[in-house]
Amino acid sequence: MLDARGILFSFSGYLSEGILYSLGDTLRQKMTLDDTDVTTIKKVFSVFIEQAQNIIRYSAEKVLGTVGKNVELSSGMVIIGTENGKFFIVCANTILEEDVPRLRQRLELLQKMDKDEIKAYYKEQLREAPEEKSRGATIGLIEIARRASEPIEFDFERIESDKFFFCLKVSI
Rank of each mutant, 00 (worst) to 15 (best):
R5A: 10
R5C: 07
I7V: 15
L8P: 06
F9K: 10
F11T: 03
F11W: 03
S12T: 04
G13N: 04
Y14E: 06
Y14F: 12
S16A: 13
E17M: 09
E17H: 07
G18T: 09
I19C: 10
I19G: 11
L20P: 10
Y21M: 13
L23V: 05
G24N: 11
L27E: 02
M31V: 05
M31I: 04
L33P: 03
I41M: 13
K42T: 11
K42H: 04
V44N: 07
F45Y: 05
V47I: 14
F48W: 03
Q51H: 07
Q51V: 05
Q53L: 14
S59Y: 04
A60M: 03
V63C: 08
L64A: 08
L64D: 13
L64E: 15
K69L: 14
E72L: 13
E72R: 15
E72W: 00
S74H: 06
S75P: 01
S75D: 08
M77T: 08
I79N: 12
I80Y: 04
G81S: 02
N84S: 15
N84F: 00
F87Q: 12
F88W: 04
A92L: 06
T94C: 11
E97P: 00
D99A: 11
D99W: 00
R102G: 12
L103F: 00
L103I: 12
R106P: 15
E108G: 11
Q111G: 07
K112S: 15
D114E: 09
K115P: 14
